[in-house]
C-alpha cells in the first residue's frame, strides 16, 4: 500500500484550514441546515425534522417580517443619504479650514470612538421625554410646552433612531471623503476656476467626480452596517413601541432567542443577507464605474 504523501504547502495550510472550518464553515452550514427544520431551542429533537422550504415560505407570507424588512430598507435609505450629504459637507468644511485642521479631524472622528451600545444609551438618555436634552432644549427655547414622547411614539422613535445612527456614522463618510479631497490634485480645481467656474460649478464638474469613488466606498461599508443594524435599536427602543421600530436583525434575534424558534430565525437571517449582497454589488458596480471615469490609478 502506498500512502500518497501530502505536499508541503497543503500540509502547512492544513491547521489554518481546519480552524477556519471549525469556527466558520461548520456553524454556517449548521445554521443553514437548521433553516430547513422547525428547530426550537426548547425542543432539541426538532433539529432532525427536515421540512424543506417551509420556513422560507412562511416568512414570505409573514407581515411582521416584511414590515421589518421595509423598515430596514427605509432606515438604510434615510441614513445613507443624510450621512452622505452631511459627511460631504463636513469634509468640505474641514478641508477648507486653514488652521487647526488636525484638531478638527480628531473631533470629526469623535463619534467613531463610541461603541454602538454606548451611542444607544447616550441617545436614549438625550431623547428621554422627561429629562432628555432634546426636550429640555425645545422647552427652554419655548418651541413647545409638551414633553415630546420621542421614544414612545412609533414615528418619532424611528426618527430618534435615525438621528442616533446618523450621528454615529457621518464621520465614516466625512473621513473617507476628506481622504479623497486631500488626495486629489489641486491643479484641475485651479484650472476650473480660471476656466470660469463658480465655486459650485467647480465642485459639480471637477471636485465631485474626483471624490465620487470615495463616497461609494463609504456607501458600501455603511450599507452593510445599516443592513445589520441591531445594537442601537436594541438599546433605544428594543423594537418597540409595539414593534414599530423592529428591524430585520432585532426581529431575527427576538425570534431566535425570545421565541426560541431557531429554524425560522435562521431562515430569516439567510434571507436578509440577500439584502446586504444586493447593496454591496450595487455600490461596487457604481464604484468601479466612477473609478474608470476619473482614470484612477488605484
Amino acid at each position: 500500500m502506498t500512502a500518497k504523501r501530502l505536499s508541503a504547502p497543503i500540509l502547512l495550510l492544513l491547521p489554518a484550514v481546519l480552524v477556519l472550518a471549525a469556527v466558520v464553515v461548520v456553524p454556517l452550514s449548521l445554521s443553514f441546515y437548521s433553516s430547513f427544520t422547525p428547530f426550537r431551542l426548547t425542543r432539541p429533537e426538532t433539529f432532525f425534522t427536515f421540512i424543506g422550504l417551509r420556513n422560507y415560505r412562511n416568512i414570505l407570507f409573514d407581515a411582521n417580517f416584511w414590515w421589518a424588512f421595509g423598515r430596514t430598507v427605509l432606515l438604510l435609505t434615510i441614513a445613507l443619504n443624510l450621512e452622505m450629504l452631511l459627511g460631504l459637507g463636513l469634509a468640505l468644511l474641514v478641508e477648507k479650514a486653514s488652521r487647526g485642521q488636525r484638531l478638527l479631524r480628531t473631533i470629526m472622528m469623535f463619534p467613531m470612538m463610541f461603541s454602538p451600545i454606548l451611542v444607544g444609551f447616550q441617545f436614549k438618555f438625550m431623547f428621554n421625554d422627561n429629562i432628555g436634552l432634546v426636550n429640555n432644549a425645545l422647552q427652554s427655547l419655548g418651541l413647545t410646552q409638551d414633553a415630546i414622547p420621542w421614544l414612545i411614539e412609533g414615528h418619532l422613535a424611528f426618527i430618534a433612531i435615525s438621528i442616533a445612527e446618523i450621528w454615529s456614522s457621518t464621520s465614516i463618510f466625512a473621513i473617507l471623503i476628506l481622504a479623497g479631497l486631500l488626495a486629489m490634485p489641486k491643479e484641475p480645481v485651479e484650472a476650473a476656476r480660471v476656466d470660469g467656474c463658480t465655486p459650485w460649478q467647480t465642485f459639480r464638474y471637477v471636485t465631485w467626480p474626483f471624490i465620487m469613488p470615495f463616497a461609494y466606498i463609504a456607501m458600501t461599508i455603511r450599507s452593510l452596517d445599516v443592513a445589520r443594524a441591531y445594537d442601537i435599536v436594541k438599546i433605544m427602543t428594543d423594537g418597540g413601541p409595539a414593534g414599530r421600530t423592529e428591524l430585520l436583525w432585532t426581529l431575527v434575534a427576538r425570534t431566535a432567542y425570545s421565541d426560541a424558534r431557531m429554524g425560522v430565525a435562521n431562515a430569516m437571517a439567510y434571507f436578509s443577507i440577500l439584502l446586504s449582497i444586493v447593496f454591496t454589488v450595487y455600490f461596487f458596480r457604481k464604484l468601479a464605474a466612477a473609478r474608470t471615469q476619473i482614470g484612477a490609478e488605484w
Partner: peptide, 18 residues
C-alpha cells in the same frame, strides 16, 4: 465657513459633552 464649522463641531461634540 466658520459658523458652519462651529455648528458641525457642536453637533458632534454635544452628546458626549452632555
Amino acid at each position: 465657513h466658520r459658523v458652519g464649522l462651529f455648528l458641525a463641531m457642536l453637533f458632534i461634540c454635544l452628546p458626549g459633552i452632555w
